[in-house]
Design a binder for these strands. Structure first.
Lengths: 144, 144
DNA sequence: CCAATTTACATGAAAAGTCATGTAATCATG
DNA sequence: CATGATTACATGACTTTTCATGTAAATTGG
């Protein structure tokens, strides 16, 4: 019983991501936001005005998925499209006033959730955890 | 720029999972299997005969999603449904011969991929990585 | 035991995601 | 500086997922 999957790195990562996110994702959905929308808002919170393609990469989704998500978010007044002056093909996405408010609110909630989740961890352990994840990401990320 | 998301645990976990899985998932899809199907086969490799509900939990998906996935996999001859003698509501899922062959083949491929991914890691580091992930999972998992 | 509740899975309509491809703008080269 | 290639996003047909709910089999309590 249970020899492969239980110690398979990709499964441990997927499980860890899934399980640790569950609570917070429920909180987001209860507020009428989808996880994908939250990811866009969180990304734009740090980097407002990213292009569709850049946003797709940051939110771990594909370009057509993101185009359609942005359509919905634009319709709902969370973001707006802005043409790029330098490159006519690019479409930059910026939060609206409402989008910024929502983003700020949930970034704060996310920080609180993370604090709760890592309540048992020492500062050293938290740093170690994140360092280890960043190493994995660097190792696996497409060669930019 | 980049203050929140870049150090946000849930994003690091999602990114790590996404990025480390990308290569192997491409391999799976190239062989005509979906990621969801692979997860089912990998789980049944360890625990053949799980119920629909148990499989949904292991594969991090929802019950209706899994019911429909199993429909397709049954149609494609990878798994079969078996009624539970003790509990008439339960449906157990078992691999077919073809399913087992496929599972075995990709479990081997997954092990190779993991070895490649962690090629730079010492045994101690690998153990540490997995220990840390399991701790997170234990911490976050629904209280069983 | 039997009604009320709960549990396990299925199902149908709607939403979201995916794949292939289209269009338009930019880039590279001769 | 024109043309062929490439890049960025949009779009449409199709597949998969989701949410709410249905059905049937256990379980629970009176």
């Amino acid at each position: 019983m249970g020899s492969f999957v239980d110690d398979y790195l990709l499964y441990l990562l997927a499980s860890a991501s899934h399980d640790t996110s569950a609570e917070f994702h429920a909180e987001i959905k209860a507020a009428g936001l989808s996880v994908a929308e939250w990811r866009v808002l969180a990304t734009l919170h740090d980097r407002n005005g990213l292009s569709i393609g850049e946003l797709a990469a940051f939110t771990l989704s594909q370009q057509p998925t993101l185009t359609k998500l942005i359509n919905r978010m634009e319709r709902d007044g969370l973001v707006k499209r802005i043409g790029d002056d330098a490159d006519g093909r690019k479409v930059r996405v910026a939060v609206t006033e409402r989008g910024r408010t929502t983003a700020t609110r949930f970034v704060a909630a996310a920080r609180r959730h993370e604090d709760g989740l890592l309540g048992d961890y020492t500062e050293v352990e938290k740093a170690q955890l994140k360092r280890i994840l960043k190493r994995l990401i660097r190792r696996a990320e497409p060669p930019a």
